[in-house]
Amino acid sequence: MWIFGWKGPSGFSARSTAEEVTEGIDATGLTAIVTGATSGIGVDTTRVLALRGAHVVMAVRNVEAGKKLKESILNEIPSAKIDVMQLELSSMASVRKFASEYIASCLPLNILINNAGIMAPPFSLSPDGIELQFATNHVGHFLLTHLLLDTMKKTARESNREGRIVLVSSDGHKFAYNEGIRLDKINNEAEYNCYRAYGQSKVANILHAKELARRLKEEGVNITANSLHPGEIATNLARNNGLLNGNIYAHQCLDSIKLSMLRRVIQGAATQLYVALHPQVKGVSGEFFKDSNLSKPGTAPAQDEELAKQLWDFSMKMIKKQ
């Protein structure tokens, strides 16, 4: 268990911080996009990437919040290279606009960290008519990756440096519907369960990385794609959790265990930074990481290669409709 700080083969554990797993790594010359950079583990992911010398593009819903975070990081790291761009992942139009503007900037792209996510809201549809968690956590990132892939390929080719695509999933994938992903019932409000739908979107993250990695390998492209579980982190991700809303005892209980059981954000950002930057991960693709170590998804659907292919085809159809 992570609370005992047991280290895995990588030499790191769930108690390792983002700075520890990137110690000694020089990311100068690398350009990275981080979605959801202004909250939760996105904040420290951005800060530590900048600390190690990477040029970070913060893809955020709230540009003002992005500018404030940029200012804060520059106060700590005056040499930091940070840009802020607007992105609403639940809207395909916003994703397309972001990608178009990024490509027009002629910036290279070495690292894409698909970090943003929402958890367990009441049933609602995205602007494109897709269940909101699936739209935000999977479809938005699927489209973003698809649109920026040529830029990543060009960067990898011209720089002769491995590109890395990182998809932040969760052990919450274990809560998905029994089928893993209900491709024929994505928008079925009658059978909607907020936690199972969240798990479904997290299975989708894992399978997206798996199938993307397979395709990149077939193409012989010097880009890897991996997914990960960042840990049970004390952030505002669970703000929609009905078990906590209005329950003072639940809040008091949660507050009392945060420091003892939930990882701090600086620890929660560690695994995605390990996957994005560490030399140990060079050439590793299509895998799942936990506690900055290789792991295995906890359910059969999350390891199903055929389901990964079906999800890919389903997602391609979704993004082509818009």
Results as ranks from 00 to 15, higher is better:
residue 69 L to V: 06
residue 146 H to G: 05
residue 113 I to Y: 02
residue 66 G to V: 03
residue 61 R to N: 12
residue 133 Q to E: 11
residue 118 I to F: 08
residue 149 L to C: 05
residue 84 V to Q: 07
residue 72 S to D: 14
residue 81 K to G: 09
residue 77 I to C: 07
residue 81 K to C: 10
residue 170 S to A: 15
residue 61 R to M: 12
residue 95 V to F: 06
residue 132 L to Y: 01
residue 147 L to Q: 08
residue 120 A to T: 00
residue 91 S to T: 11
residue 140 G to E: 11
residue 160 N to R: 07
residue 120 A to C: 12
residue 106 C to N: 10
residue 154 K to G: 03
residue 169 S to C: 14
residue 149 L to V: 02
residue 69 L to G: 08
residue 163 G to T: 05
residue 141 H to L: 12
residue 122 P to G: 05
residue 128 D to G: 07
residue 161 R to H: 04
residue 93 A to G: 12
residue 116 A to W: 04
residue 99 A to L: 03
residue 124 S to V: 03
residue 146 H to K: 11
residue 73 I to M: 07
residue 142 F to Q: 05
residue 79 S to M: 08
residue 128 D to F: 00
residue 124 S to G: 13
residue 170 S to Y: 06
residue 166 V to Y: 07
residue 135 A to F: 00
residue 59 A to S: 10
residue 102 Y to H: 09
residue 92 M to G: 12
residue 128 D to A: 01
residue 86 Q to E: 13
residue 170 S to P: 15
residue 142 F to Y: 02
residue 87 L to C: 11
residue 124 S to K: 12
residue 93 A to R: 15
residue 121 P to W: 00
residue 125 L to C: 10
residue 119 M to A: 15
residue 59 A to N: 10
residue 103 I to K: 03
residue 90 S to H: 10
residue 127 P to E: 00
residue 167 L to R: 13
residue 81 K to V: 09
residue 137 N to G: 08
residue 71 E to M: 10
residue 75 N to A: 13
residue 83 D to N: 10
residue 164 R to I: 13
residue 134 F to K: 06
residue 62 N to V: 09
residue 87 L to Y: 01
residue 91 S to E: 13
residue 117 G to M: 01
residue 99 A to E: 13
residue 168 V to D: 06
residue 95 V to Q: 12
residue 116 A to V: 09
residue 117 G to P: 14
residue 73 I to C: 02
residue 144 L to C: 09
residue 108 P to M: 01
residue 134 F to H: 03
residue 141 H to S: 14
residue 158 E to K: 02
residue 114 N to H: 02
residue 64 E to P: 11
residue 58 M to A: 06
residue 81 K to M: 12
residue 68 K to C: 10
residue 132 L to C: 06
residue 109 L to G: 10
residue 84 V to F: 06
residue 77 I to D: 01
residue 74 L to W: 06
residue 82 I to P: 14
residue 81 K to A: 12
residue 106 C to A: 07
residue 60 V to K: 01
residue 122 P to M: 04
residue 97 K to V: 04
residue 78 P to H: 01
residue 153 K to V: 05
residue 108 P to D: 05
residue 136 T to V: 08
residue 77 I to T: 01
residue 61 R to S: 15
residue 132 L to K: 03
residue 60 V to W: 04
residue 106 C to L: 09
residue 95 V to D: 10
residue 137 N to D: 15
residue 114 N to A: 03
residue 164 R to Y: 12
residue 127 P to L: 01
residue 101 E to P: 07
residue 87 L to R: 00
residue 146 H to T: 12
residue 80 A to G: 08
residue 168 V to S: 00
residue 167 L to C: 15
residue 145 T to N: 04
residue 121 P to C: 00
residue 114 N to C: 11
residue 132 L to W: 00
residue 136 T to W: 02
residue 74 L to A: 08
residue 115 N to P: 04
residue 93 A to W: 10
residue 68 K to T: 14
residue 113 I to D: 14
residue 77 I to P: 11
residue 168 V to I: 06
residue 79 S to L: 11
residue 91 S to P: 15
residue 155 T to Y: 03
residue 63 V to K: 13
residue 92 M to L: 15
residue 139 V to P: 13
